[in-house]
């Protein structure tokens, strides 16, 4: 795993504290139960952009497909994406705990035409977070 390199990158980042801005619903009291299983995390978070079939989408720009994506071979890549975001994709650390990130990365690496069998652990994620 090349997580060490990614870890060094992450060390340079401070925790993202997003200021509430713009028009908002007005309560921020969401009490819905957070997703637990890998499938739930995928469906309730990732799927919003990457789609149910993980094929992403294409419009004025594109949302990359996770299906059959050779970049997923290196687990540090998807973990880093979730921790740091890229472009329009925000870091998801305010929504997902390390265990949820580990389980969904494992899920995506073994579904949608990907078969990178080795599971990603909570410890892997925490290491990349510098914990």
């Amino acid at each position: 795993m090349k997580t060490r390199a990614a870890f060094l990158i992450l060390l340079a980042l401070s925790a993202p504290a997003f200021a509430q801005g713009g028009d908002t619903p007005g309560a921020s009291t969401n009490k819905a139960r957070p997703p637990v299983t890998s499938e739930q995390v995928y469906q309730q978070v990732c799927q919003a952009c990457h789609m149910a079939d993980a094929r992403g989408g294409k419009g004025a720009a594109m949302i990359p497909a996770l299906a059959k994506n050779p970049k997923l071979e290196e687990p540090g890549y998807p973990i880093g994406m979730i921790l740091q975001g890229r472009g329009a994709m925000p870091p998801l650390t305010d929504l997902l705990k390390p265990a949820q990130i580990a389980t969904v990365v494992t899920y995506v690496r073994t579904h949608f035409g990907n078969s990178y069998k080795k599971p990603v652990t909570e410890a892997d994620v925490k290491m990349m977070m510098g914990q």
Partner: peptide, 19 residues
Amino acid sequence: VAWSRVPWTMGCCARWNEE
């Protein structure tokens, strides 16, 4: 309308933080 799936913005609004 789910803004993360709007083909011409792929999101709702820019989210700045202090950093």
